[in-house]
Every structure is written in C-alpha cells, then in structure tokens.
C-alpha cells in the first residue's frame, strides 16, 4: 500500500471535518477521492501531506509519517490550486521548487515538457491562463519523479478543453505506472480516469471499491407486447409500469425465449446505474 489511514480524524471544536476515515491507495493505481464540496477531501489530503495535524487516528504515506521529509520527497502534490510567485516566470517558479526538493535544473525542463509548457515557460505566472497555472502545478508536483502524485481538484475552474487536457495528462501519467490520488467532486472525471474510488460524505468514508463494483450489476430493460406474458416467461423479472427489468446478461437467450412464445419484442437495452446515481444514493446529495 502506498497510502493507508486508520480512523483518521480532524475536529475543529465539536465539528468533525474528517471522521474516522480509513482508506488505502495501492501502488500503480489511480485512486479517486470523491465527495461533495465540504465533505472533507482537502482536509484529509492536507493531513496526508502534514499540513494539518490529525486530532486522532493515523496515516502512513509510503511507509512514512505524513509531512516528514522522507515522505514528502516521494510525493508530488497540487492542493486546491497552484501556489506560485506571481512575479516569477513558470520556469523560475519551478527552479525555486526544484531547489527545495533538491533536484537539478534538468528536472525542471523535463517537467515543463511533460505538461507542454516549454513555450510559455518564460512568461510570468500571473499572465498564465487558469489551465496553464494548473499544468504548472502538475509540473511542480512531478519534480523529482515522485512515487505518489496527489492532485486535489486539478480541473477546478478549467474550461471543458482544459479539463480534457488535464484528464489526458493524468491518463498519460497513469499509463506510465504513476500512482495518483485524485480528489474530485466531478463524477464523470473520476469514472473516466480512476481504477478505485473512495467516497467521502460529511467527513466519513462511505464506500471504497472499484468503479465497477460501485455501479453494481447491469440490468436489462425490456419492452414487449404483451408485457404480462413476458413477465411470466422470464423468471425473476420485475415489472415496472410497461417495462421489465431483468438481472440477466444473456440478452440473446431472453429474446429467443420471448420470440418463440409469440411475444413481440420492441426494445431490449442494458440499464446501468451511473456513478452519479450511486454517488447521490451514498452521499444523500440530490
């Protein structure tokens, strides 16, 4: 495991912002940390990076205590937007960061290339578009070839093209075997990119599994005439108004059965819960 937390808790007064969260991130996976705004994602991540001290519970990052130099040097992070000096160029900002991480200039150029910012590297950070700023943040996170990349809402504020670019970048990193912990409230983003998902709501981790497992089995929707006859013919089917729902994956066999029994089949299509539906169920957000 790259990251493990055990009943990690942060309280501000009586309010538990993060409440006994136990999660695990495996090497080589893209882990989606999913939750509505204010659910406790960023506070959890800040605890993993040592920026915030937990009230109780524990965490290990790459086998080390969070926030120690040993852990931090193996982690690249982008938390709640990039934090850079506005008067410095993108390249100089990375040079400053490289000094702190103890890596040489060649890493700076490699990171700029990786996020496709070489052409704008000498422009002042304050003149960057939001997308360029986020990419520079990812470049800083990549300095020193970290074993774990923590990206907190990396597509926040980006336009659709910028979001697509960021997703492509994360996908490319994942394809290279990079472990990524990606926090987001955008379900489509998590569904597209992540191998496993942890869902946090009101400070508590309410689910942790693969996206497939979260979405559950596929259901077949069938429209047929007469529908009552089809309902009797298909064992275990559920009649919902004028359609049938069947937990069955062999659609061909079902259709053959109905046709042989003189039932007119008008529509057969798979129905699958989206991650959005699952998310709303779990978090109570609508």
């Amino acid at each position: 495991m790259i990251v493990t937390t055990e009943k990690l808790t942060k309280r501000y007064g009586d309010r538990a912002v993060v409440d006994e969260v136990s999660l695990s991130v495996r090497r080589g996976e893209v882990y989606g940390f999913l939750g509505p705004n204010g659910a406790g994602k960023t506070t959890t991540i800040r605890m993993l990076l040592g920026l915030v001290q937990p009230t109780s519970g524990s965490a290990r990052v790459l086998g080390e205590a969070p926030g120690t130099p040993k852990a931090l040097l193996k982690v690249g992070s982008l938390i709640e937007g990039p934090g850079f000096y506005p008067y410095l160029s993108g390249r100089d900002n990375l040079r400053v960061h490289a000094h702190r991480r103890g890596v040489d200039r060649t890493h700076v150029e490699a990171a700029l290339e990786q996020v496709d910012l070489v052409g704008a590297a000498n422009e002042k950070f304050r003149r960057y578009s939001l997308g360029m700023k986020q990419r520079l943040g990812v470049a800083a996170a990549l300095l020193g070839q970290p074993e774990l990349l923590i990206l907190d809402e990396p597509t926040n504020g980006l336009d659709p093209a910028g979001m697509a670019d960021m997703r492509d970048l994360v996908r490319a990193l994942a394809a290279q075997g990079q472990t990524v912990l990606l926090s987001s409230h955008l379900l489509g983003e998590v569904e597209e990119i992540c191998d496993r998902v942890g869902v946090i709501s009101q400070g508590r981790l309410v689910a942790e599994s693969t996206v497939e497992q979260l979405r559950g089995d596929t259901v077949l929707l069938i429209r047929a005439d007469p529908i009552e006859k089809a309902h009797v013919l298909i064992e275990g089917s559920e009649l919902r108004g004028d359609v049938l729902h069947v937990r069955e994956t062999d659609a061909g066999a079902l259709i053959r059965t109905l046709v042989h029994a003189d039932v007119d089949v008008r529509e057969v299509r798979p129905l699958r819960r989206t991650l959005e539906e699952v998310f709303f169920e779990m978090t109570g957000v609508a």
């Binding site: 990076l49 931090l72 990039p82 934090g83 506005p86």
Partner: peptide, 21 residues
C-alpha cells in the same frame, strides 16, 4: 495569500528548514 507556503511546506524540507531558508 499566494499559497506559496503550502507549496513550500509540501516540497520536502522540514518546517524549521523552510523557515531557516
């Protein structure tokens, strides 16, 4: 305001070293 302390403190050095810097 710039968020650079956050970047500094997650870069690797101990907080005491960051302040000393």
């Amino acid at each position: 305001g710039w968020g650079t302390w956050k970047t500094t403190l997650t870069a690797g050095p101990r907080r005491v070293s960051a302040m000393a810097g």
